[in-house]
């Protein structure tokens, strides 16, 4: 039973990818808006694509809430490693929960900008900046989340671990890699700006590769858990 609900959560959380993709494409955020663009240019963008932007930002909000499903299943599996006293599972869940807000709050500010696109272009620019820069805490939440997963996976000493050990190192790597996202606070142009090769494209590509890898590993871990329950404890299968 628990395996089935976990699978449901994992597969539903993949809708994140669909909503996130549409949520960026509809407002014209792929590639992201130019951080060095002037107020007139940015305000014009909000005036011309108003409806598509509003819809896109709502989809971004839906996508961010969906990550909660993924985060929860990761913690369920980490708890299998850690047992009753499971600090990593809780750290992962709290940091991952803050990660939900990291996208939710900027989308609301983008909606505020698209809500009255006729207002002073300088104010539109401010809202737009504020929304993009609210993505900076990603590096902090995501770093802690991936570190917790990595340490938990590496602490698994059973002969048949929940996750392969390389997944632990993968998460530690991703944790370090998320740090350059903080650089967007410093630059309006170049590879480290919020639309840059490193700060946006590299971080985004690695994030999605990580997400897909974790989904595959989670499904395998759930399968392993079910196999253990059906062979390991007859009482559970008897009642089920």
């Amino acid at each position: 039973m628990s395996g089935r609900s976990q699978r449901l959560c994992v597969w539903l959380s993949l809708l994140f990818v669909v909503f996130f993709g549409l949520g960026l494409i509809l407002p014209g955020f792929l590639p992201p808006t130019d951080p060095s663009a002037g107020a007139g240019e940015v305000a014009a963008m909000y005036r011309t694509h108003t409806q598509a932007m509003r819809l896109g930002f709502l989809l971004l909000q839906a996508s961010s809430a969906l990550t909660a499903l993924f985060v929860a299943v990761v913690s369920v599996q980490l708890k299998r490693i850690e047992g009753a006293h499971s600090p990593y599972a809780y750290v992962q869940m709290i940091a991952g929960g803050c990660g939900v807000l990291v996208l939710l709050i900027p989308s609301t500010l983008w909606i505020a900008a698209a809500f009255r696109p006729e207002r002073d272009p300088q104010l539109i620019l401010l809202l737009n900046d504020l929304a993009w820069l609210l993505l900076t805490p990603t590096f902090a939440c995501f770093c802690i989340q991936a570190t917790a997963i990595g340490l938990a996976v590496l602490s698994d000493t059973r002969p048949d671990p929940v996750f392969p050990r390389w997944a632990g190192y993968l998460n530690l790597w991703v944790a370090v890699l998320s740090l350059p996202a903080g650089l967007i606070a410093f630059f309006r142009t170049g590879p480290f700006a919020w639309n840059g090769l490193i700060s946006f494209w590299m971080v985004a590509i690695i994030f999605f590769a990580w997400l897909i890898t974790m989904v595959v590993l989670l499904l395998k871990a759930i399968g392993q858990q079910e196999a253990g329950q059906s062979t390991g404890s007859p009482a559970v299968t008897g009642s089920a």
């Binding site: 392969p164 050990r165 390389w166 997944a167 632990g168 190192y169 993968l170 530690l172 790597w173 370090v176 890699l177």
Partner: peptide
């Protein structure tokens, strides 16, 4: 080392 650490090192 363990094989897994090379995921981290080659990734870095």
């Amino acid at each position: 080392g363990e094989a897994g650490i090379w995921v981290l090192i080659l990734g870095e």
